[in-house]
Design a protein around this nucleic acid. Structure first.
Length: 224
DNA sequence: CACCAGGCAAGTA
DNA sequence: TACTTGCATGGT
């Protein structure tokens, strides 16, 4: 049972960010496979670093399942080095693509035929794929209605005291999914808005009263 | 120089 | 279950 106030807050946050930033057209990638690769490479890493790695892979024509499977680990590691944790991510990329090739013949269309809960469980079963990575792949590569939670989502809700420290991934996800209509473009855009502005929210718990949402609210009031 | 970034899995108690 | 730690580059 969700408090009405909390639901209103979540909608209000969306409208405020949406009104200011407009449509962000996310995820930044040319095709679904690139989304999957990016989802793994961006784990705890700044996207600017991931871009360098993706560019290096694209340069060599490696943004294809077969190419990732066949390339030597050492060579792949060198190419994705800018994205950090590069030995670890080399193993994770290969593990994921092996799964993608074996279960779905490297076809996103095949993957999409799977029911959402089943596919989510299978993704979580792949070594190196956790909840955020799985949900990012589900939403942005497979067009499934799942809300993606990340560090910024948590930070924003904590900052505005809409959740407490102990509420974690599935709990936070449920807040959004029980509040919002399950529309894929909405889920994509809301998460995009959060990531777009998330780093500007202070990480201190006390009210700074100067975070992006506060600034936007003040601007709205001044306009009246 | 310290701190941070679109996590995750393995180890410990 | 609840915490801690390793993994690493590039930007501020």
């Amino acid at each position: 049972m969700l408090r009405v106030k909390l639901r209103n807050e979540l909608v209000e946050i969306y409208e405020r960010l949406e009104g200011h930033f407009g449509d962000l057209h996310w995820w930044p990638a040319d095709d679904p496979f690139e989304v999957m690769v990016g989802a793994i490479l961006t784990q705890n890493t700044a996207w600017t670093n991931v871009e360098k790695a993706i560019a290096a892979l694209r340069e060599k024509g490696l943004l294809l399942p077969d190419r990732i499977l066949r390339i030597q680990a050492e060579e792949l590691a060198e190419l994705i080095r800018p994205s950090g944790y590069y030995h670890l991510k080399t193993a994770r990329l290969k593990a994921f693509v092996r799964f993608f090739a074996e279960c779905y013949s490297g076809s996103v269309e095949e993957m999409q035929k799977e029911a959402l809960p089943v596919l989510r469980d299978k993704l979580l079963g792949v070594w190196g794929v956790g909840r955020e990575t799985a949900d990012s792949i589900l939403l942005y590569a497979c067009e499934k209605p799942v809300f993606v939670i990340d560090a910024y989502t948590r930070r924003i809700l904590l900052r505005h005291q809409l959740i407490t420290e102990k509420l974690e991934y599935e709990g936070i996800q449920a807040l959004f999914m029980e509040t919002l209509p399950h529309e894929i473009p909405l889920f994509k855009q809301y998460h995009a808005l959060i990531v777009n502005t998330g780093k500007n929210f202070c990480r201190k718990k006390p009210n700074c009263n100067n975070c992006p949402l506060d600034v936007l609210r003040k601007a709205e009031q001044a306009r009246e």
